[in-house]
């Protein structure tokens, strides 16, 4: 992969005696949607606050496009578009005036840019209505439009699907994926709702109690060298189990609901199928049981979901 656009290096945050973030390190690359997951209170928002400079870093470094956020704030923040927690826009201004307001704070944001962004997030028809009348979903979309006005290299969104209906979530997901792929922007999305993140993110980090638990690809389970659970539907489970165990005594195998559960890599499964068939067992189907992000999350956090 190319150079990371955002890089956290052993970041710590202490407030008084509380050690809120401990040695947190991860990288986010251009063009990817990076999920930042953890239970409520794990330190997701604190980390985002540190990335955008709303709170000081106790120790460690946050680098945005080569600039340290604490030493070279102005250069670093120019690359960031962000929504921290709720998209809090000015309720007494219209959607268009909100964008004019934030556009004036950056160089070279034209009327056309504002119009373009309004159209992209599908708010063109209500641009002259006051934000106070907007639904949460509309505010989220306007929040994204303001975050992207100055063409940032990384978009940081804190719980962007909060309060959205399923259609809104889907729309948001499609839009973010499109933006990441087409404009090559990196997107960091924090969430505690995992089923949504699974469909949205390329990679994710899980934090718990301020510590990084793991970073991995959403698709990592498809790698050939990792043992996954497979379900075999056969005509005679007892016989099939005995046959397999006699040939491969080390494998984990169980009978469950008249089905055979086997933990094995892709390669092993291939030879199991050939072997069972040669011994006269009839195979109806073999299914690889997909471990959902949620299950992996629970595994990583020892089931401590708030």
């Amino acid at each position: 992969m190319s150079e990371p656009i955002l890089s956290l290096r052993k970041v710590n945050k202490k407030i008084g005696k509380n050690h809120i973030i401990k040695d947190l390190s991860f990288d986010v690359y251009p063009g990817e949607v990076f999920g930042f997951l953890g239970p409520n209170g794990a330190g997701k928002t604190t980390t985002i606050r540190m990335i955008v400079g709303l709170t000081n870093i106790t120790s460690g470094e946050i680098i945005v496009n080569g600039n340290s956020i604490s030493k070279n704030y102005k250069k670093a923040i120019e690359n960031i578009g962000a929504i921290v927690e709720n998209p809090e826009l000015y309720p007494y201004l219209t959607a268009r005036k909100n964008l004019i307001h934030f556009g004036r704070m950056s160089n070279n944001v034209t009327k056309e840019d504002i119009q373009h962004r309004l159209e992209l997030v599908n708010l063109d028809h209500v641009k002259d209505e006051k934000v106070a009348r907007f639904s949460l979903g509309m505010k989220q979309r306007l929040g994204i439009a303001q975050a992207m006005l100055h063409n940032p290299k990384i978009l940081i969104l804190d719980e962007p699907t909060n309060g959205l209906d399923p259609a809104g979530i889907r729309q948001m997901r499609d839009y973010l994926r499109k933006v990441a792929k087409e404009e090559g922007i990196a997107i960091l999305v924090s969430s505690h709702v995992l089923s949504e993140m699974e469909l949205m993110c390329d990679r994710f980090a899980i934090i718990q109690k301020g510590e990084l638990v793991q970073v991995e690809d959403v698709s990592s389970e498809e790698q050939a060298d990792i043992a996954n659970r497979h379900i075999f539907e056969v005509n005679d489970v007892e016989k099939a189990k005995d046959i397999l165990l006699s040939e491969y005594p080390d494998i984990a195998i169980e009978i469950h609901d008249n089905l055979l559960q086997v933990d094995a890599t892709k390669e092993q499964i291939g030879s199991f199928i050939t072997y069972l068939t040669s011994k006269g067992i009839i195979l109806y189907q073999v299914i690889r049981e997909k471990q959902t992000l949620e299950e992996r999350f629970l595994q990583a956090t020892n089931g401590e979901v708030s």
Binding site: E85, Y90, F102, M105
Partner: peptide
């Protein structure tokens, strides 16, 4: 109103 956050996370 919380709008200070969007105001500050800019150059």
């Amino acid at each position: 109103k919380g709008t200070i956050k969007l105001l500050l996370v800019r150059s």
